[in-house]
Design a protein around this nucleic acid. Structure first.
Length: 939
DNA sequence: GTACTCACG
DNA sequence: GACGTACGTGAGTACG
């Protein structure tokens, strides 16, 4: 049945996961020089792989090679026995970021890289070994895992890759006391403390082998247990019969995994010099790079040249040698045969750039129209799926266009590729396409995202959209989509385009994405931001995609009733305002309002802005109201209602999805320079809370029947981070003691004992605390507290005198920014500050942003780390809670009524520990939790 | 398309 | 010494 392998072939199956762990534990903790990324395991792994590849030319060379990895997550064994491998310590933090790199290394060496969800590497190895053996091929398993010894014999042999010793039937017998065919029987009796296989208590390998040699196998032994002479041993076997049977199922390898990779993909081929040397150079493995370059007869690339990092002024790096972009060269895939040719090419390459074309921008509504693929720079294809023909009259009678594949057939062919753990999918803004594919039943993984690579390297320097990146790094302006679908009212959807017109535009995006990826991959390392990208940007993509697809239930009637109430109140206010003004005008027009106030009513002190219009912001109107003017006071009320109505009670209703009845926001991972997320369409991160009237809008965000909303938020996270970064002992101590931090600050700065603290003094200290986070200035503080500027300055001076560490932090940060053109968060996120050395007020802005960025950014990093870990934590506890929203320091879940408390405990633990082990904070992180039937009640 | 205003952390 | 400012966002409205 197995194709692509047979007599005369020799298959090497390499236990990749085994290699990684042995390399990790055997080698000292090596880190990459330029940025400290741990690479010890990768280095050991590469050396071992290289040794294997070198042997591929030897006398006993394999014709086929595959490197097999464990897939993270549950396997079928956990269904049999939940405790399986439950005593394993979590993956060491130093090892985690190295995992994807080992896959990359495998592909770079030109080897098939295989893993599959739900199965361990051992099962895949067993399946491939048996298939190849039955087809008549010779099989060598390179591993030292004793669990694989059951496969030895009949044309399958094992080699311990590290010690370079052969493991044949004799060696197996020496270890287990039985031949390979009885290994599972011995293992199921003896158990395995490493994998937490229970076995029979008190029976080890020696006794097990004795029993099996006497009775033949486990089943016979259990049937005839009464015959055992030793009473204790007999009783143990009788008492634990079921446990032994379970153990047998655990240790028996699955030889019938529905594998997704054929033997064709494992054929030995010469590694591509660019791929392998490029990877090794990025890793900064000088010795190995030089050795392999010599072997391949090419010049070694320069290793670890930080000069390759982009300069702080954001100048575009030089374009690499690539063929020019030529949309006329792209192919249109219209039938199965053509698509299969592409799929073969993808499997051979191990990666593919993917882009989708859809009917709109809202990925919860838009339909998939076509798919673009590219594996080679300059070559790309468009697979049209749902184009329609004809203008599509008013009745929508447009018909399916000719010359495209049946969508179901095409997607069925692509699904195994898109879900193959051994094939990297490269996308620009992967979250969008992931959500589109999710609605087609396809889980896109693993992925790489050029938008996020750019964000990790160049956050603060420029935007990260495809057009901007293409123009900047490829010197190429992509075909504007508007040139095809038009704008405004006459705009059409993508499916209405003729396939021939759509294809060049569509395929170009995949080509561009692939080019960007080739350019960014080495630079990501040079910019020292690989860890940030791999731990805080890329893993967030599937998490956010799921949250966005979850959405939150919104009570339309509640909003509608509020809208009506607001409309009535506004009408009343409007009449009053016109009465006071002496004429009717548009209250919503700041320009008209300014003229009424300062020209017609003659109020003094009107200030004009740069456009010549009077400023009428809330602060100005408040001042006028305080002077006793009624009209501005009414306008303030009117504006509040107008804002609530238009932005929330009205607009939110339009965002309720017809199919789900829920509101699905979209998070922009690269939206904020500091690492914060941004929320759009609608923005659910600015739902009112500060006023009573506004807060009622939160009552419209509800839980489904039988569920509650659970909200958890970090308490004072930015001040805690400030205390840590600036090293302020008094603040740290206050957080350790659980004190009221603003009262404590007030007490220190204003010399007031805590028990004599007044709300007024505390308010001032609170304003200073926040001011510090924002890059304090006397002007800003004076504005905020409505006090004279010299008074504000006196406060700040007193504060700095009491906490000199804060002043020091601010000066150090400014100096660092001026020297490097960027600042960093505690977790290594780089935030560029290109204007820090500018002249004039721009530098002042940049200075305050530079003070704020490490604080806001570290807090953002922490919640990102928590969000990445939460789905696993919930899954491990079999908890069904759904994460719905993130509001910078708050996470909102929907959870079954009885499960709220358990969920809160799990999530709180993850959130409070989220900095660990990368950063050991000097202050505790504290998370507050609340539940309720709606968001107002839960918050 | 830009400016202004205001909602959130 | 003057500049003209609190940090980070998104969205709705008016207006040219």
């Amino acid at each position: 049945m197995a194709t692509g392998i047979g007599k005369g072939h020799h298959l090497h199956l390499i236990d990749g996961s085994g290699f990684i762990f042995r390399a990790f534990h055997a080698l000292p903790p090596l880190t990459r020089k330029s940025d400290g990324l741990p690479v010890g395991a990768v280095s050991g792994f590469c050396n071992m792989i290289y040794k294997m590849v070198e042997a591929n030319n030897g006398p006993d060379a394999p014709t086929h090679v595959a490197v097999i990895f464990d897939h993270s997550g549950k396997t079928f064994r956990n269904d049999i026995y939940p405790e399986y491998k439950a005593n394993r310590p979590p993956l060491p933090e130093d090892l985690r970021p190295q995992m994807p790199l080992t896959r990359e290394a495998t592909r770079a060496f030109g080897l098939a890289c295989i893993e599959q969800e739900g199965f361990e590497a051992d099962d895949l190895i067993a399946t491939f070994a048996v298939q190849a053996r039955d087809a008549g091929a010779r099989v060598t398993i390179i591993s030292s895992d004793k669990d694989l010894m059951q496969l030895v014999g009949g044309g399958v042999e094992m080699v311990d890759g590290m010690k370079n010793v052969r493991i044949g039937p004799e060696e197996v017998e020496a270890k287990f006391g039985v031949g390979p065919d009885r290994v599972v029987d011995v293992q199921s009796l003896a158990g395995d403390s490493v994998d937490n296989v229970p076995g029979a208590p008190g029976i080890g390998i020696k006794t097990a082998a004795l029993l099996i040699n006497e009775f033949g196998d486990v089943e016979t032994l259990l049937e005839r247990a009464e015959e055992i002479k030793q009473p204790k041993r007999r009783q143990t076997l009788i008492d634990n019969a079921e446990q032994i049977r379970i153990s047998k199922r655990l240790v028996t390898l699955d030889q019938n995994v529905p594998v997704e990779v054929g033997f064709e993909a494992m054929e030995v081929r010469e590694p591509n010099a660019d791929d392998v040397l490029g990877f090794l150079a990025q890793m900064e493995f000088r010795t190995l790079t030089n050795r392999i370059a010599e072997k391949l007869g090419v010049e070694a690339p320069t290793v670890a040249a930080p000069a390759g990092a982009p300069s702080a002024d954001g100048a575009a790096p030089a374009k690499r040698d690539m063929p020019p972009i030529d949309p006329s060269k792209y192919e249109i895939v219209r039938d199965k045969a053509a698509l299969e040719t592409w799929i073969t090419a993808i499997r051979e390459r191990g990666y593919v750039a993917v882009d989708t074309e859809t009917t709109g921008l809202d990925e919860m509504i838009a339909d998939l129209v076509g798919i673009c693929l590219s594996v080679e720079v300059g070559q790309a294809c468009y697979v049209p799926l749902r184009h329609v023909e004809g203008e599509g009259d008013l009745l929508g009678s447009s018909e399916r266009a000719a010359g495209q594949m049946d969508p179901a057939e095409a997607l069925a062919l692509l699904k195994p590729v898109f879900e193959d753990a051994a094939i990297l999918k490269i996308l620009q803004n992967a979250k969008y396409d992931m959500k589109i594919f999710a609605r087609e039943g396809i889980t896109l993984a693993p992925i790489e995202d050029t938008m996020l690579m750019s964000y990790a390297m160049h956050g603060g320097l420029h935007g990260h959209g495809m057009d901007a990146l293409s123009e900047r790094y490829l010197d190429h302006k992509p075909i504007p989509i508007k040139s095809l679908i038009g704008t405004g009212k006459s705009q059409i959807t993508f499916d209405k385009l003729k396939i021939e017109d759509a294809a060049p535009y569509a395929a170009e995006d995949a080509d561009i994405t692939l080019r960007l990826w080739h350019l960014f991959k080495p630079r990501l390392h040079a910019a020292k931001t690989t860890t940030v990208y791999e731990t805080m940007e890329r893993p967030l993509v599937p998490v956010l995609a799921q949250m966005e697809r979850n959405g939150i239930l919104v009570d339309r009637d509640h909003l509608s009733r509020m809208s009506n109430t607001f409309a009535q109140k506004m009408a009343g206010l409007e009449a009053e305002i016109h009465e006071l003004a002496g004429r009717s005008f548009n209250v919503g027009s700041p320009k008209q309002l300014g003229e009424i106030l300062f020209d017609e009513m003659g109020i003094q002190g009107g200030k004009k802005g740069k456009t010549g219009a009077y400023a009428t912001g809330a602060d100005i109107l408040e001042e006028l109201a305080a002077q006793g003017h009624d009209l501005p006071a009414r306008v303030l009320d009117w504006r509040q209602l107008s804002k609530l109505k238009s932005t929330y009670t009205d607009a939110l209703q339009d965002h309720i999805n017809k199919d789900t009845g829920r509101v699905h926001t979209s998070y922009v991972i690269s939206g904020a320079n500091t690492g914060r997320l941004a929320s759009t369409d609608p923005n659910l991160q600015n739902i009112p809370v500060r006023t009573e009237e506004g807060r009622r809008i939160r009552e419209a965000f509800v839980a489904e029947e039988g569920n509650v909303l659970l909200s958890l938020d970090y308490s004072q996270i930015e001040l805690r981070i400030l205390a840590h970064i600036a090293g302020i002992d008094a603040l740290k101590q206050a957080f350790h003691d659980g004190l009221d931090i603003h009262a404590m600050t007030a007490s220190q700065v204003f010399d007031v004992p805590l028990d004599e603290m007044t709300p007024e003094v505390r308010r001032k200290a609170k304003a200073i605390n926040f001011g510090v986070i924002y890059g304090i200035s006397a002007f800003g503080l004076a504005n905020n507290l409505r006090i004279p500027r010299d008074e504000a300055k006196a406060f700040i001076d007193a504060y700095f005198e009491r906490f000199p560490g804060i002043k020091q932090y601010m000066e150090d940060t400014k100096k660092f920014a001026q020297e490097h053109g960027h600042v960093k968060t505690l977790f290594g996120r780089v935030i560029h500050t290109p204007e820090i050395n500018a002249k004039g007020p721009r530098a002042s802005f940049a200075y305050r942003a530079a003070i704020n960025a490490p604080i806001q950014g570290s807090a953002a990093d922490i919640i990102r780390r928590a969000m990445v870990r939460i789905p696993d934590a919930l899954r491990a506890a079999d908890n069904s809670a759904r994460m719905l929203l993130q509001v910078h320091d708050e996470l909102i879940f929907e959870v079954r009524e009885g499960e709220a408390e358990a969920t809160a405990a799990i999530v709180r633990e993850v959130m409070e520990q989220a900095a660990n082990p990368a950063v050991k904070l000097d202050v505790p992180l504290v998370v507050d939790a609340g539940t309720g039937l709606n968001w107002a009640a839960a918050h």
